[in-house]
Computed example of a mutant assay.
Amino acid sequence: MTWIKESANGSRSFNFVAPEGATNATNEVLFPFHEKQTPAYAATLAVAVKQYNTVLAPGKLTGNATINLSVNSQVTPGAKLLLRLEADSTQRTVTLGTGFDADADQVVVPISSVVFLEFTYDGTAFMPVAINSVELAELTSELEVLKDTEVLDPDYAATLAVSVAKRETFLQPKELTGEVTLNLTIDVGLAPGSKLHIKLTADSGANRTVTLGVGFDAAAAAITVTKSTTSFKSFVYDGTAFVPLT
């Protein structure tokens, strides 16, 4: 028996259980050491993988790139490669070249975004690790919510005409320097349950009154914003008009 680490009380031995199905007389697994590589951006990135866990985080992508891996002979199946890709203000495409599975797709990194990917070594090449169906469903749901959100910040005017077409709308007019009436134009396809969140900030001159006009429930009371303060109010769409949330 062999020991991995000596304790204060002397050496301690640890054994490994041989897995079922192992047929070779000698079976080796690379020690799970790690390495992080942060090369500067280049159109072609040549990366040497020699540890069981490798984190690859190139500099910000200022152009498209191809990543080629040279896999050290000591790397054993099951090794992990974690990839972090960040694009500048332009969408960038990363081609997975040598060392990756031939069927691995190109990676598209959206404008000013970061993409994280994981790969596992199968003894020949690094294969993409796909997210499971539950994670995919959650991600899709989150993206749908983000896609159906809008922030509106119109300049102050005595009458503000606002179009509401998203499931979640954040309305934050510039500082109120006088009284104001809010009129909504509601998209015909807007689903009941959609939310409208309003942020109102009054200047230092006086208290400001905000009248809730077209598109709001007829019983919705005007909002008084005390001078030099900010008020928040949320509404939900009932299929006809926006009703205050209490």
Rank of each mutant, 00 (worst) to 15 (best):
Q51M: 10
K50A: 15
T23Q: 14
D101Y: 05
I67C: 03
Y41V: 09
S73I: 12
A22C: 11
A87T: 00
K50S: 15
A18R: 15
L85G: 02
V47L: 08
V49G: 08
K60N: 11
A43F: 07
A57R: 13
A87D: 00
K60W: 09
I111E: 10
N64E: 10
G63L: 08
T44C: 02
R12Y: 11
F33V: 15
A25V: 11
A102T: 07
A48G: 11
K80S: 13
P39R: 11
V107I: 05
S73H: 11
F100R: 01
G59C: 04
F31G: 07
A42C: 08
V47N: 05
V107Y: 00
D105Y: 01
D88C: 01
V47I: 14
A102M: 01
F16Q: 13
P39Q: 10
N24D: 15
S13R: 15
Q51F: 10
I111H: 07
I111L: 06
L30A: 12
G78M: 05
L83H: 05
A42L: 02
Q37K: 13
T54V: 14
V55K: 12
R12C: 07
A79R: 01
H34Y: 15
A79H: 02
S13I: 10
T98E: 05
G78A: 04
A18E: 14
F16G: 10
Y52P: 03
L61V: 04
R92G: 00
A65K: 00
Y52A: 15
K36W: 09
D101L: 05
H34W: 14
G99F: 02
V17A: 12
L96R: 00
F31H: 09
A46Y: 08
N27L: 13
T44K: 07
P110K: 06
N68P: 06
A65Y: 01
R84K: 08
V49R: 02
P39M: 07
I111P: 00
T54C: 08
Q91K: 06
V47P: 03
F16P: 03
N68L: 06
L81K: 02
L61I: 03
A57P: 07
N24I: 07
F16S: 12
V47F: 09
E28Y: 14
T54A: 04
S89A: 14
A104L: 03
A104R: 03
P58G: 07
N53A: 11
P19W: 05
A57C: 06
N64K: 08
F16L: 12
V47R: 03
F14D: 14
T23N: 12
T54N: 10
P39A: 06
T66Q: 08
T76Y: 02
N24K: 14
N64V: 05
I67A: 01
D105S: 12
D105N: 06
E28W: 09
V17H: 09
N72Q: 08
P19E: 13
L82W: 07
A46S: 13
G21V: 08
G59Y: 04
S89F: 09
A48W: 04
L96F: 03
Y52S: 13
Q106R: 08
S13H: 12
N53E: 11
E35A: 15
I67L: 06
T26V: 13
F33C: 09
I111N: 13
A104K: 04
A46V: 09
A22R: 11
V75N: 02
N68G: 10
G59I: 05
L56C: 03
L30N: 05
T23L: 12
A104T: 04
Y52C: 07
F33S: 15
A18L: 12
G59S: 05
